[in-house]
Simulated assay, not measured.
Amino acid sequence: MDSNSSKGVSTHASWTSAISSFMLSHLANVVAGGTRTSSGFKAVHLNACARAINERFNSTLTGEQIKNHLKTWQRKFTKKNRLRKVSSASWDEKKFIITLDDEHYNGYIE
Rank of each mutant, 00 (worst) to 15 (best):
35 T>L: 09
28 A>R: 11
72 T>N: 10
14 S>I: 11
74 Q>V: 09
97 I>C: 14
43 A>Q: 15
66 I>P: 02
53 I>V: 08
11 T>C: 10
72 T>I: 08
7 K>A: 13
92 D>R: 00
68 N>R: 10
27 L>F: 00
36 R>C: 08
67 K>L: 02
48 A>F: 05
86 V>H: 10
58 N>L: 07
72 T>R: 02
77 F>R: 11
35 T>W: 06
27 L>I: 02
89 A>T: 10
61 L>Y: 02
42 K>L: 12
3 S>W: 07
102 D>F: 07
101 D>P: 10
33 G>I: 01
13 A>N: 08
60 T>P: 00
105 Y>C: 06
82 R>D: 06
37 T>K: 10
34 G>R: 07
56 R>N: 02
63 G>L: 00
29 N>G: 15
91 W>D: 01
97 I>G: 05
108 Y>W: 11
101 D>N: 12
84 R>N: 07
20 S>G: 15
29 N>V: 10
16 T>A: 05
12 H>G: 11
25 S>A: 09
98 I>T: 07
57 F>T: 03
49 C>N: 04
83 L>R: 13
64 E>A: 15
76 K>A: 11
24 L>F: 03
97 I>N: 11
60 T>L: 07
47 N>Y: 03
94 K>W: 09
31 V>W: 03
98 I>D: 03
33 G>Q: 08
2 D>M: 12
33 G>N: 05
101 D>V: 04
34 G>I: 05
88 S>Y: 03
57 F>H: 04
27 L>V: 03
17 S>H: 09
71 K>I: 07
79 K>R: 06
23 M>A: 06
30 V>M: 03
108 Y>P: 01
43 A>S: 14
69 H>D: 00
15 W>K: 02
29 N>C: 13
2 D>I: 09
45 H>P: 00
37 T>S: 09
76 K>G: 07
104 H>R: 08
27 L>D: 01
52 A>W: 04
86 V>C: 08
47 N>F: 01
75 R>P: 05
49 C>Q: 04
1 M>R: 13
107 G>C: 08
40 G>I: 00
13 A>Q: 13
7 K>Y: 14
85 K>I: 02
93 E>P: 13
88 S>A: 11
39 S>Q: 13
9 V>F: 12
44 V>N: 10
99 T>W: 04
95 K>Q: 13
29 N>A: 11
70 L>M: 06
65 Q>S: 02
34 G>D: 04
11 T>F: 15
8 G>V: 03
55 E>H: 07
59 S>D: 06
